[in-house]
């Protein structure tokens, strides 16, 4: 339920962004061109890979291969850290270019949407790292509800980025 509520809030933001873009297409397009597509694309590949690793981690626990789970969850958490580092580098480039939250409406959306998402990534990375540690002691027959809950949250983080990335970086 929490996941759907979170997704509904982001969907509302997507609609507001498109509406404001519709009102000032030239400003939004000029601002979009200041973004680095490579950062966005690589970040998407990182999150998709981390989601796949989490699926494999849960699958390993489900099918009695518990020893593999910590490696999958640990690798997924490392992807989360890579995303955070990449985002910090990207923000640094923007700040160096004199671009900030108050530059214009586009960058207000850019920093708010990516910032809120980055917060979700940070929380998700901690959750997945905790699951990596916890799964070291997992045994066949243990409940995996906790792992499935953490995995669902992480997939939502991935799913939201799959939407945010094209909206901000690719819509021309």
């Amino acid at each position: 339920m929490f996941v759907y509520a979170d997704m509904a809030v982001f969907a509302l933001m997507f609609g507001c962004f498109m509406w404001d873009r519709h009102q000032a297409p030239a400003l939004f397009e000029a601002s979009r061109q200041a973004l680095n597509l490579d950062f966005g694309g690589i970040n998407t590949l990182i999150l998709l890979s981390s989601s796949m690793l989490v699926v494999l981690g849960v699958d390993a626990l489900k099918h009695g291969r518990a020893t593999l789970a910590p490696r999958f969850f640990g690798s997924a958490a490392a992807c989360g850290v890579a995303f955070i580092v990449s985002k910090i580098l990207e923000y640094g480039q923007k700040f160096d270019a004199g671009i900030g939250l108050t530059s214009n409406a586009f960058f207000q959306y850019y920093f708010i949407m990516t910032g809120l998402h980055l917060g979700h990534v940070a929380v998700g990375t901690v959750i997945i790292a905790v699951l990596a540690v916890k799964s070291r002691g997992a045994r066949a027959g243990d409940s995996i509800a906790l792992y499935e809950g953490g995995a669902t949250y992480w997939h939502m983080v991935d799913l939201l980025w799959v939407c945010i990335f094209p909206l901000l970086y690719l819509v021309r």
């Binding site: 597509l37 490579d38 966005g40 694309g41 998407t44 590949l45 998709l48 890979s49 094209p166 970086y169 690719l170």
Partner: peptide, 8 residues
């Protein structure tokens, strides 16, 4: 992964 690369 492939569709992300194609989009970007």
């Amino acid at each position: 992964m492939a569709s992300t690369a194609a989009s970007t």
